[in-house]
Nucleic acid binder design. Structure first.
Length: 506
RNA sequence: GCGCCUCUAGCUCAAUUUGGCAGAGCAACGGACUCUUAAUCCGCAGGUUCCGGGUUCAAGUCCCGGGGGGCGCACCA
């Protein structure tokens, strides 16, 4: 829907009376000490029989989500992040009973009282005292339907978190996923580090960066598009098992699967190669599923995904043959692969080499068909400037992408360790940039100097945390796993309107 | 960036095949009610139908332009 005008007439009219009430009648507490969460109370007294009074007094706080005043008696539902519990108020027992009945949905209150189960069987706190902690001057949407408008849900996530069941659970799950990965990697001897977000030149991936300006140095800097090069410099420095979970930024369009800032795990292991990385992928993805969801077979968008290791391993060439029905190989040469691409309706630029052509064919015909999980192995060197040449297949590198539900979940390779080879690859990238590839890499001399100190054989991987959480949470849109996804700013709307209506821009 | 869909009260949704007084439920506001479970009942109020033009006696509805969002394509993880 359209953006939300504020303050809207409805809001003003609805709440002027309540502002009076708050100012004149009710103090807002500074502090409230709870003995337990609302949901914790519900769980620990679940055994109470109908009509039974526990004799135990608790103090708990949260938002009022339902209110059913009924004359000399009132029921309400208090909810906090542990769950919910019914409140049971009596005119004869509850202080300021009339005001308690006037509370609005969404108001925060703290209550103390005995835990009882009502005659109708609902576990409740019998309110012996209560305190207003904050007023909700805006509504929380329909109490049955919540708020379904995605624009409101994403722009006002704080409202969405209360109004729609399950939203908060996704973010609690996300937190647990990241905690679980940290724990697993820590147990495997990996050290977590933090490398710069502001890069003098963007590197480690093929992507367009965001540019910003560093005043003190009178120079432009780039928001990182990957953590890769700094992390491998850590390995050169002797941090043999290193990882970072951090935000990376890519200056590209929004989609249900892309946000310009996203969270990536990158990990590097000295003395390892890409086969070690496959094992780590399986351990993280299946292990975390087992730990948090209780199973390695998870439902996703109406189908099951079996994450149980070991995952299928197949080469890019094999999978293209399976799904596109064509035999391809780098040895066929550029012209032949162009003809194959044309016959499949795959568009390409004239400067694409055989490797880029092969990758395009894969991405247009095969990738989305792979339900997986499957490790797609052995990419053309041409499209993998940081990966080490395959030990037995000329023209290819030791690289794989794990594909689940038709999507790349990450990327991994046996790292290129030879500084001369790396320099040549960077220079090749610069030639491609000159030909029109604005995502091609540029020569990173700091990185080359590091390689000249000696990088041992190293396996590395990247894993998109947002996409992993999407799988676990069974959601199709990345915005569902980002608390505050990128949206067009509302502030631009009035400006856009005046521009559209013919007023000159300033 | 391109294509398709969509936008009506604070929220969820109605409004007859190009058109004929813009409605309901919930929330809010006033009242009744001593065991409710989306409580119920009575009353009251609530609108720039996303914005700007146009066609028409008459536009939420039809046409043009713009904006937000969703989905798809493209690019990427």
């Amino acid at each position: 829907m359209a953006h939300l005008a504020w303050p809207s007439p409805g809001i003003r009219a609805q709440h002027s009376a309540r502002r009076e009430w708050e100012r004149d009648v009710r103090e807002i507490g500074y502090r409230f000490e709870t003995t337990s969460g609302a949901g914790d109370v519900a769980r620990s007294f679940a055994h109470l029989a109908t009509g039974e009074e526990s004799g135990v007094t608790v103090a708990t706080a949260g938002r009022l989500m339902l209110s059913r005043p009924q004359g000399r008696i009132a029921f309400a539902e208090l909810r906090d992040w542990t769950g919910g519990i019914q409140l049971f108020a009596l005119a004869a027992l509850t202080p300021d009973f009339e005001e308690f009945c006037r509370l609005s949905l969404g108001d925060w209150i703290g209550v103390t009282g005995e835990v009882v189960r009502t005659r109708r069987g609902e576990l409740s706190v019998k309110v012996a005292s209560w305190e207003l902690l904050a007023q909700a001057r805006r509504g929380f949407g329909d109490k049955w339907h919540g708020v379904s408008d995605p624009d409101i849900r994403y722009r006002q996530r704080e409202l969405d978190l209360w109004a729609n069941d399950g939203v908060r659970d996704i973010f609690l799950l996300r937190s647990k996923v990241i905690a679980s990965i940290r724990r697993r990697l820590g147990a495997a001897g990996f050290v977590e580090v933090e490398t710069p977000v502001l890069h003098p030149i963007p590197g480690g991936a093929a992507a367009r960066p965001f540019v910003t300006h560093y005043n003190a140095l009178h120079t432009d800097v780039y928001l990182r598009i990957a953590t890769e090069l700094y992390l491998k410099r850590c390995v050169v420095g002797g941090i043999e098992r290193v990882f970072e979970i951090g935000r990376t930024f890519r200056n590209e369009g929004l989609s249900p699967r892309h946000n310009p800032e996203f969270t990536m795990l990158e990990l590097y292991q000295a003395y390892g190669d890409y086969t070690d990385m496959m094992q780590i992928f399986e351990d993280i993805v299946a292990g975390t599923a087992e730990e948090l969801l209780g199973t390695t077979v998870i439902p996703y968008q109406g189908r099951d995904i079996d994450l149980t290791p070991p995952w299928r391993r197949a080469t890019l060439v094999e999978l293209i043959a399976e799904h596109a029905g064509v035999e391809v190989d780098l040895s066929m040469g550029k012209e032949h692969l162009q003809r194959v691409a044309s016959s499949l309706g795959v568009p390409f630029e004239p400067w694409y080499g055989p490797g880029k052509l092969m990758l395009e064919i894969y991405e247009k015909t095969t990738e989305a068909e792979l339900w997986g999980p499957v490790f797609v192995c052995d990419y053309p060197q041409e499209v993998s400037p940081l990966a080490r040449a395959h030990r037995s297949k000329p023209g290819y590198v030791e690289r794989f992408e794990p594909i689940v539900a038709g999507r790349e979940l990450g990327n991994a390779f046996s790292e290129l360790t030879d500084p001369d080879d790396q320099r040549a690859r960077f220079e090749e990238q610069e030639r491609e940039r000159a030909l029109g590839d604005d995502e091609a890499m540029v020569v990173d001399r700091d990185y080359l100097r590091a390689l000249e100190l000696g990088l041992p054989p190293t396996g590395g991987l990247g894993l998109g945390i947002d996409r992993l959480v999407m799988l676990y949470a069974d959601v199709a849109n990345i915005k569902e796993v980002l608390l505050f996804p990128a949206l067009r700013p509302e502030d631009n709307l009035s400006e856009a309107r005046s521009t559209a209506s013919g007023e000159p821009e300033t």
